[in-house]
Nucleic acid binder design. Sequence first.
DNA 1: CCATTAAAGTGGT
DNA 2: ACCACTTTAATGG
Length: 234
Amino acid sequence: MKKEEVGNCVSCENLSCLMKKNYAADNYATAVANRMVIECKKSQSFIIEGAPIHGMYFVYSGKAKITKSGYNGKEQILRLTGDGDIIGIRGYSSRKVYPIAATALEPTTLCYFPNKFFTNELQTNSTLTYDLMVFYAEELDKTEERVKKFAQMTVREKVVDSLLSIYERFGQDDEGLKLVLSRTDIANLAGTNSEQVIRVLMTLKNEGVINCEGKHILLKKVDLLRKEIQEYNY
DNA sequence: CCATTAAAGTGGT
DNA sequence: ACCACTTTAATGG
């Protein structure tokens, strides 16, 4: 884990960032003074499952996966994160070690806040604390939805659901979805294996619903895909 | 540029 | 769903 401290912190332009949102210009300077900017290369893990909790991260730019390792070495992707997202936010439970791992999926810049600083902020800045509570509530909601989907969806539906969640979070351009994942990563997100993902992707391609060129996946008929899983959405 | 490893894809059980 | 295998792509020196 390579950490690089930047002497002169660039101003955070990311308006969805929880910190930026909850600080007036003058107080924000205090936050900036306490943060550390970390540059991550692709496939670099900046949080290791089981390592002692030391602080929390915001994604300044880039993308990362949050994972938990399973029984036979297979990992489960819990969620995907991008600009403005918070990572490592369970340092406030009684746990002393991170229950998850976080790995960059592309070159990623992180804002890091040591626990000591952030704990103090939570006790003094109630809007920040409230926003964080809303985040927790939404995460719990999403997790419960996912439990239902994992139990009830077919393999095909789980893959479709995963593709749509990537589409909704990250969008797509002419090339395809803006988050490029390996088949194995898609499988670990959907709760299947890479073979099944490969087969579902090929079927969808033959049906003309998506387009695949290497790792670039383009959703051609989003409405049709949504229709396939609509009964699972509330 | 080549060598080694990782990922994609296929077919059989 | 799982495993074994071939082909193809990515990585690193």
